[in-house]
């Protein structure tokens, strides 16, 4: 069981699975009996975002802080005042889903000072070998450098979220391990864990694997 810190920030390339991972981590922490707030800090992506799952999260007792206009037709990069409070250390857990690439991470820069002062935190850089623009460790490392430059915060671990949606097989996960290790090596960061869907996790022989479910998907 992975021990999450009070503040978990999820960074990564577009479509690497940040939102799905954020939802899974928030649900996991909540089901362990903790108070959790999940913050949708994505001001770039119009569809498939944490804010879209508000109802499901609130049923689980999870608080959602999202841009006011999320899931509407207003393509407006504004953040609510409540976002400020998210980065105030307290006895609750916070999971922050950041927008993709450097463009999405710009919004995080607004809170950089507070985040850098926050002690009990993990800043994960999520990678997926099967995303076409981050399929080599060099490309994946480059994107984190751009994100760090735009957000003025540094990641402290890599998460291997390599998958091909419902087609992911055990061998895909195995084939991603070397890629994830090399990415972490280039970035001089530890590899926190590798994710795998519940249906294939039993067959996996891995040291640090984190079970997730596929929550983010189209409506058919």
């Amino acid at each position: 069981m992975f021990e999450f810190k009070h503040l978990t920030i999820i960074l990564g390339h577009y479509g690497c699975g940040k939102t799905n991972l954020s939802l899974n981590i928030a649900l996991d922490i909540a089901r362990r009996g903790n108070k959790v707030t999940v913050a949708d800090l994505d001001v770039v992506n119009p569809y498939f975002r944490t804010g879209d799952y508000r109802e499901m999260l609130e049923k689980e007792g999870i608080k959602v802080v999202a841009p006011i206009f999320v899931s509407t037709n207003l393509d407006n990069p504004s953040l609510p005042a409540a976002m400020e409070d998210i980065f105030q250390p307290k006895d609750e857990y916070v999971v922050v889903d950041v927008g993709g690439d450097d463009a999405g991470a710009v919004a995080l820069g607004r809170y950089a000072r507070k985040i850098n002062e926050y002690k009990d935190k993990d800043i994960f850089y999520v990678v997926n070998k099967f995303r076409s623009l981050t399929s080599t460790p060099q490309d994946a490392a480059q994107i984190l450098r751009e994100i760090e430059l735009a957000s003025r915060i540094r990641a402290n671990a890599v998460v291997n979220n390599s998958h091909l949606q419902q087609l992911t097989a055990a061998e895909d996960i195995y084939s991603s391990l070397d890629y994830a290790k090399k990415t972490a090596e280039i970035l001089n960061l530890p590899l926190a864990f590798t994710t795998a869907e519940s249906k294939i996790i039993d067959g996996l022989d891995l040291d640090s694997v984190y079970e997730i479910q596929r929550i983010v998907k189209p409506p058919f």
Binding site: Y14, G15, F130, R131, S132, L133, L164, Q165, L167
Partner: peptide, 16 residues
């Protein structure tokens, strides 16, 4: 390319 990747529709249109 030739391998299998996860792509957004918009990206796939561009690459194709």
């Amino acid at each position: 390319m030739g391998e299998r990747f996860l792509m957004k529709g918009n990206e796939a249109l561009a690459e194709a």
